[in-house]
Structures are given as structure tokens and as C-alpha cells.
């Protein structure tokens, strides 16, 4: 329990530091709005996100009005409600995917870097291999080939596509995080306090988790925010190409893809989801810049 309180306190401290930077001051509130909408958006939405408004003829492709703030789409659905409900799956999936990749990447990067030698060499070659593939292409391949097949376990079926996306994002995130954390570990392990721990007879696991891990946290914080923004970009791109998160949850990418048909006479259909994606990613990137400034790391973005 004490450990949990400590973790909460550390996170609170970190957030306070980020809030002190100009980027953090703008970015955190934007993110907060998105996260609130993601949790309670579907209940706040004035209309159902999926049901067609009746009668269809009178309600389809209506421009923004007091009744429909952002207008309606080709099926007469309220765009505001759809945008509000779209955040839930997108954020849940991208956060889990990024978290999975960061956790595995950090673990692999730290142990491989600390171990060194031939194992490290092999691990890093595998990571290079994984990285020599554009993330979006890998995600496309996985979704196209596995997305419409039945899940290996019946219980996963209802979320199968989302699980696939989470795993794919994890796989594309992992090598990039591993590479960064490994290089941090390589420089940390030559430092005297790590050598001291070895001289005390501490085991590798102790050294990795108690001596090295705490010192990688600022870098991990930056990585987490950068990777999250890439996850969101990749997932919404998948949605745009029609291979995104599972229906019936509205998908901002897909909404934008479909809006192209009426771009000439109903531009509002495109505006709302575009704004939603843009503000979400801008928010994440602002926070990411804030974390970088607050942690005193060089401004250089990570690749």
C-alpha cells in the first residue's frame, strides 16, 4: 500500500513539473478533456452515436445547428455524439498498445543492455529487423490477414480486432523503446554506483530493477508520451483505411474517410473528426514536449 502511495506521489510530482512548462500547461488540459470524454462521453452525448435519426430524409447531412451542434452525417446521425463516443475505444486501444510496447521494450532494453555480449547483439539485430518495417504497413498486414479470422479463444472474440491492434502497436513500439532504453542502460551501467552494487554482490535482477530502472524513468516518461502519439496516429490511419477498431464504436478515421464523398456540400462531416484527432495528438505531443523540458533531457525528439 505504501508503495502504491509512493508511486501516486511520484506521478503527481511529475505532473506538477510538467504543468510548470508552457507546453504542459496547454497540453495537459487538452488531454484531460479527451480522457474525460473517453470515459463518460457516451453517456454525455445528446443522441445515440449509432442509431439513425428518423425520418432519414429530413435529418441526413444537416449543417450544424442548435439541434445538431456539429451537424449530421449521411445517415442522419448526430456528429457531435459520434465524435464524443469515438474517443473511448481509440484511447483505450492506443494506451494499452503503447503501454504493452513500453513495458516489454523497457524490460528487454534494460536486460539486454545490462547483459551485453552476444545475447545483446542478437536481441538488437532482432529489434533492427522489427524496425525495418514501417509500422503502418505491419499493422495493415496483421489486420488484413488476421482481423477477419476467428479468435483462437472464444472468450476473446468480442474484442478480437482490438486485441490484435493492441498487440500490433505493442510490437511496433517495443523495438523503438528497447533501443532507447538500452542506450540509457549502457551508459548507466558504466557508472560507479552500478559498479558499487556489483561489488556488493547484488544480483542482475536487483541491479536492473533497483539501481537502473529508477534512473531511466525520465526517459521512459518521454518515450511513453511520444509512443502514445504514434499509436494514436497509426490506429486512426488504420481506421481511415477501413481496418481500424471494431464497429459499432464510431471511428474518427473511418468517419473522415467516408466524409470525402460529401466534401463539396457537407464539409462539416469532415471537420469534427479531423478536429478531434488533431486536438488529441496535439495534446499528447504538447505533453511530450513538456515532459522533455521538465525532465531536463535534450530537446531532441526520439525516432
Amino acid at each position: 500500500m505504501g508503495a502504491l502511495a509512493l508511486v501516486v506521489q511520484r506521478i503527481a510530482n511529475a505532473l506538477r513539473l510538467v504543468l510548470r512548462t508552457p507546453s504542459g500547461r496547454i497540453g495537459l488540459p487538452i488531454l484531460l478533456v479527451h480522457f474525460i470524454l473517453a470515459t463518460i462521453g457516451p453517456w454525455l452525448a445528446p443522441y445515440s452515436a449509432t442509431e439513425f435519426q428518423q425520418p432519414l430524409v429530413e435529418t441526413q447531412l444537416q449543417p450544424p445547428s442548435w439541434e445538431f451542434l456539429f451537424g449530421t452525417d449521411q445517415f442522419g446521425r448526430d456528429i457531435l455524439s459520434r465524435v464524443m463516443s469515438g474517443a473511448t475505444t481509440l484511447i483505450a486501444v492506443s494506451v494499452s498498445g503503447a503501454a504493452l510496447g513500453i513495458a516489454l521494450g523497457a524490460a528487454i532494453g534494460m536486460s539486454s543492455g545490462y547483459r551485453g555480449g552476444r545475447i545483446d547483439e542478437i536481441v538488437m539485430r532482432v529489434m533492427d529487423g522489427l524496425m525495418s518495417f514501417p509500422s503502418l504497413l505491419l499493422a495493415l498486414l496483421v489486420m488484413a490477414m488476421l482481423g477477419n479470422r476467428p479468435a483462437p479463444i472464444e472468450a476473446l472474440q468480442s474484442n478480437w480486432q482490438n486485441i490484435l491492434i493492441v498487440i500490433t502497436i505493442g510490437v511496433v513500439t517495443l523495438p523503438r523503446v528497447a533501443r532507447v532504453i538500452r542506450s540509457v542502460t549502457l551508459s548507466l551501467k558504466t557508472l560507479e554506483f552500478v559498479q558499487s552494487a556489483r561489488l556488493r554482490g547484488e544480483g542482475s535482477a536487483y541491479i536492473i530493477f533497483r539501481e537502473i530502472l529508477p534512473n531511466t524513468l525520465p526517459v521512459l516518461g518521454v518515450e511513453a508520451s511520444v509512443r502514445l502519439s504514434y499509436a494514436i496516429l497509426t490506429i486512426s490511419s488504420l481506421g481511415f483505411l477501413g481496418l481500424g477498431v471494431q464497429p459499432p464504436s464510431p471511428d474518427w478515421g473511418l468517419m473522415l474517410a467516408q466524409s470525402r464523398q460529401f466534401l463539396g456540400h457537407a464539409p462539416w462531416v469532415a471537420m469534427a473528426p479531423a478536429g478531434a484527432i488533431a486536438s488529441l495528438v496535439v495534446g499528447v505531443n504538447l505533453v511530450s514536449d513538456g515532459v522533455k523540458q521538465a525532465s531536463g533531457l535534450p530537446q531532441e525528439a526520439t525516432t
Binding site: 554506483f193 559498479q195 558499487s196 561489488l199 533497483r210 539501481e211 529508477p214
Partner: peptide
Amino acid sequence: RMVFQNPTASLNPKM
């Protein structure tokens, strides 16, 4: 036991 050159790096800054 050993004592190192750089005192700042001899102690874990996070501990």
C-alpha cells in the same frame, strides 16, 4: 571494497 573517482556517480541519484 572500492572507492571511485567521481563522487557524484558513486551514489545512485534516485536513492
